[in-house]
Design a protein around this nucleic acid. Structure first.
Length: 472
DNA sequence: ATGTGC
C-alpha cells in the first residue's frame, strides 16, 4: 500500500490512504517509527461508509480491528457505530484523587510499603477474591451509574460532580439481550483493579511555575501526593463487547457487508443492532465509572485506617479513553469513537462538566510503570482532532516480545529497587508483571512532546510514581 | 482487556 503525506507544522501529518485521509499527531521521531500495519488498519477503518474523520494520537499501535490511539467520527444522522473502534475494555479510563500528604511524608520506604499493604486489604488484586461490596446490586449500577450506589459509598457530593459523566442514560430494555451469566461473572467485581495495564499508583506532583495558578484552582500543589487509578468495566464490559460483536458480525453477514479485516465490525447507528450495542455500551460505561469510584473508596478506607477517620481524598477527575460518545461538533451531532484516546476539552467549551466549564477539565494521562504520568488541559486547537489526545505512552512491543527482550533485573533497575528512592511495587516477584515494564512502552515524554507540539493540550502537572499496585 | 479460546 502506498501513501503520501502532507505536513502541517512538525506534529500534524495528513496521510492520504487509498480509502481516505488519516490525521496523525506525532513529532517527527514518533511519526517515523510507525509501521505499515497501522496505516493498513486505518485504511480498513476508512472503508466503513460515511466516515467523517479518522485520527491517530502519537501512542497509536496495532490493536484488534482498529489501532489503539484512534479517534473516528461519524454523523449521528447517517453514521456507523463500531464495537471494534470502542475496544474490548469498554469504559476503561483514569481517575485521580488529591490527598493532604506531601511527598516527604512518603520519603521512608517502609511507609510506602505499609501503604501498599493496607490498600491491598481494601482493593483486592486477586480477581477471584472479592466480597468487599457484596451489598451493592450491580444491576442498579449498570442502570444508574454512580446514582446506583448506596449512599454510604458516596463520601461527598464532590465524588459525583467531578467526573466526566456520573450516569449514562439509555434504554434499559437492551439489558435483556445479555446472557444471564453476565451478572454472575461481574458480581463482586466492583472495586477491583483487574490485570494487564491496570493499576493504582501513589505519585507526587511536579508543577511548573507558569501552571501553578491553574493547578491551585484544581487543588494541585507542587510536591503534593495524589492517587492515580487506571481500570475499566471488568467482566461486564468484556461480555458486552464479546457478545455484541457476535451479533453485529452476524448482521453484517446478513446485510452482505464485509471488510478485509474480519475483526473490524460495525453497524448503522440507527439499526436495531447498532442501537442495542450503544445502549449496552452505556451500561458498561456506568459499570466502569462506578468501579473506579469504588476502588478509590477502598483506597480512602486504607488511608483512614492509617491516618484516622478524618482523612479526605477529594476527586480531581474521572474520565475514560475507550468509548463512543454523542458530541456536538462543527454544528452537527456526531458519534465520536475514542479507542485509547483521551478527551481534552479547552477552557469554556460547552461539553465540559459543570465544575470544569471555566478552566477546561483535567486530562489524565498515565505513563508506563516507573515513569511519569501527566495531568493536562485541552486547547481550542484540539478541535482538529475532535479534542482527543493520547491515552498513555502506547505499547512499543507485544507482551510476548517484551518477555523475550527484557530481563527481570533490567525491570528492577528501572524501578530503582534496592535504593531509598525505590518505586515500591505490591508484587513480590516482578516476573509476574514483566510485560508491563517501561521497556514495553514508548517514551512517554516523546508522546507528550507530540501532543503539546501539535497544540492539542498543555501539561499542567507531571506525576512521579512512588508506589504501585498492580493486579494479577 | 477478559471468570478467557473458531
Amino acid at each position: 500500500m502506498n501513501w503520501n503525506s502532507k505536513a502541517h507544522g512538525r506534529n500534524h501529518h495528513e496521510v492520504e490512504l487509498p480509502h481516505g485521509k488519516l490525521h496523525v499527531f506525532a513529532n517527527p521521531e514518533i511519526f517515523g517509527s510507525f509501521e505499515a500495519k497501522v496505516y493498513e488498519m486505518a485504511d480498513n477503518n476508512l472503508r466503513i461508509p460515511r466516515n467523517k474523520y479518522m485520527g491517530y494520537t502519537p501512542d497509536a499501535h496495532v490493536g484488534v480491528g482498529t489501532c489503539i490511539g484512534t479517534t473516528a467520527v461519524w454523523n449521528m444522522r447517517d453514521g456507523m457505530v463500531s464495537p471494534s473502534i470502542v475496544g474490548v475494555d469498554i469504559g476503561c479510563g483514569m481517575r485521580v484523587h488529591t490527598t493532604p500528604l506531601h511527598k516527604s511524608d512518603l520519603q521512608d520506604k517502609a511507609v510506602r510499603r505499609k501503604l501498599i499493604e493496607t490498600i491491598e486489604k481494601y482493593v483486592p488484586t486477586n480477581e477471584r477474591v472479592n466480597s468487599n461490596y457484596a451489598d451493592i446490586d450491580i444491576m442498579e449500577v449498570v442502570r444508574g451509574g454512580l446514582e446506583g450506589l448506596p449512599d454510604k459509598y458516596i463520601p461527598s457530593k464532590q465524588w459525583i460532580t467531578h467526573v466526566e459523566q456520573s450516569n449514562f442514560r439509555y434504554d434499559h430494555a437492551a439489558l435483556e439481550q445479555l446472557p444471564p451469566k453476565i451478572r454472575k461473572n461481574a458480581h463482586g467485581q466492583l472495586g477491583t483493579l483487574g490485570s494487564g495495564n491496570h493499576f493504582c499508583e501513589l505519585q507526587y506532583l511536579e508543577i511548573a511555575e507558569e501552571q501553578k495558578e491553574l493547578a491551585a484552582r484544581w487543588g494541585l500543589v507542587d510536591g503534593g501526593v495524589v492517587v492515580m487509578i487506571h481500570s475499566g468495566s471488568r467482566a461486564w464490559g468484556a461480555m458486552v463487547g464479546r457478545e455484541h460483536t457476535k451479533v453485529i458480525k452476524e448482521a453484517m453477514h446478513q446485510w452482505g457487508v464485509s471488510n478485509p479485516d474480519p475483526n473490524l465490525n460495525y453497524a448503522p447507528i440507527h439499526s436495531r443492532e447498532g442501537e442495542t450495542y450503544l445502549n449496552l455500551m452505556y451500561s458498561a460505561l456506568n459499570f466502569a465509572v462506578s468501579n473506579r469510584h469504588m476502588i478509590a473508596f477502598g483506597v480512602q478506607e486504607a488511608f483512614r485506617e492509617l491516618y484516622g477517620p478524618e482523612f479526605e481524598m477529594p476527586v480531581l477527575y474521572d474520565l475514560m479513553h475507550n468509548y463512543a460518545l454523542k458530541e456536538f461538533h462543527r454544528n452537527e451531532p456526531m458519534l465520536v469513537h475514542r479507542k485509547g484516546a483521551t478527551r481534552a476539552l479547552p477552557p469554556g467549551h460547552f461539553l465540559n462538566t459543570a465544575v470544569y466549564k471555566e478552566t477546561g477539565h483535567p486530562a489524565l494521562i498515565p505513563g508506563s510503570m516507573g515513569t511519569a504520568s501527566y495531568i493536562m488541559v485541552g486547547r481550542d486547537e484540539g478541535l482538529k482532532n475532535f479534542y482527543s489526545i493520547c491515552h498513555g505512552a502506547g505499547r512499543l512491543r507485544s507482551r510476548r516480545a517484551t518477555r523475550l527482550a527484557v530481563t527481570v533485573d533490567e525491570f528492577s533497575q528501572s524501578l530503582k529497587v534496592g535504593t531509598e528512592e525505590e518505586i515500591v511495587v505490591n508484587h513480590r516477584s516482578l516476573e509476574t508483571i514483566l510485560d508491563e515494564c517501561p521497556q514495553a512502552y514508548k517514551d512517554v515524554d516523546q508522546i507528550i512532546d507530540s501532543i503539546t507540539g501539535a497544540k492539542l493540550a498543555d501539561v499542567v502537572a507531571k506525576c512521579k510514581p512512588m508506589a504501585v499496585i498492580k493486579g494479577i
